[in-house]
Computed example of a mutant assay.
Amino acid sequence: MAKKTLILYYSWSGNTKKIAEKIKYEIPDSDLQEVTVADGTFDSDQYKTNDIALDQIQGTKEFPEAQMPTIDFNDYDLVLVGSPVWSGYPATPIKSLLEKMKDYKGEVASFFTSAGTNHKAYISHFKEWAAGLNVIGVARDDSEVQTWIK
């Protein structure tokens, strides 16, 4: 029997959204939900947004709220979390999302989109932010999705 799957994603430019929609197509009975942030949280310029995120991570330690409908994560066997890579980190709304998921007992996997090459840092930072969750994998784009859903 297929795992009941939820696909959550934050997409700043639309690239992660495209991958999330592709994954949704690959897992027909899955649920798809976008995570958003308040207007004005980030800049339309990717370099300014990167600076804002680094300040949140390394400076203020204040992360933007992950806005989405109320979800009972424990209704799902597997939650896929999608994010762009920002300076080797998941987008900062993902930190807030993972906090909301702290009581989730199922499996978590992350897919990411990146224009750069700092993937190993993303993997370690995602796992650090998801401490206490059952992370079964982290992969670029949708390369591992079929393995995760089996």
Rank of each mutant, 00 (worst) to 15 (best):
D39L: 02
N15E: 15
W129S: 12
A38Q: 13
L32F: 12
H119I: 05
E26Q: 15
L8M: 10
E21T: 12
I27G: 05
M1Q: 10
P69I: 06
L54Q: 15
G59L: 01
K22D: 08
F73W: 04
D142V: 11
K48H: 08
P93Y: 09
V81M: 05
K95N: 13
H125M: 09
A66H: 03
V135A: 11
N50C: 11
A121N: 06
D75K: 06
N74W: 03
P93Q: 06
P93D: 07
W86H: 04
V37E: 07
K18N: 13
S114R: 01
T117R: 13
D45R: 04
G82K: 03
K17D: 15
K22T: 09
W148Y: 05
Y25V: 12
E128D: 13
G82S: 06
T49E: 05
N50H: 11
A91Y: 01
A121V: 09
K61Q: 14
A130S: 10
T70S: 12
I52V: 15
A121K: 13
T117W: 14
K24H: 09
D55Q: 15
S96L: 12
D39K: 14
K17L: 10
R140T: 07
P84H: 06
V85I: 14
A131K: 15
P93G: 06
N134M: 07
D75I: 07
K127Y: 08
K4S: 05
S87V: 05
A38W: 02
Y89R: 06
S114V: 01
Y10N: 02
G116Y: 07
T113G: 07
L8D: 10
Q33T: 15
S110V: 00
D51V: 03
D77I: 02
I23H: 00
E128L: 08
K100I: 04
T147L: 11
T117V: 13
V85D: 02
K95A: 14
Y89Q: 14
D77L: 02
E128P: 00
D39P: 06
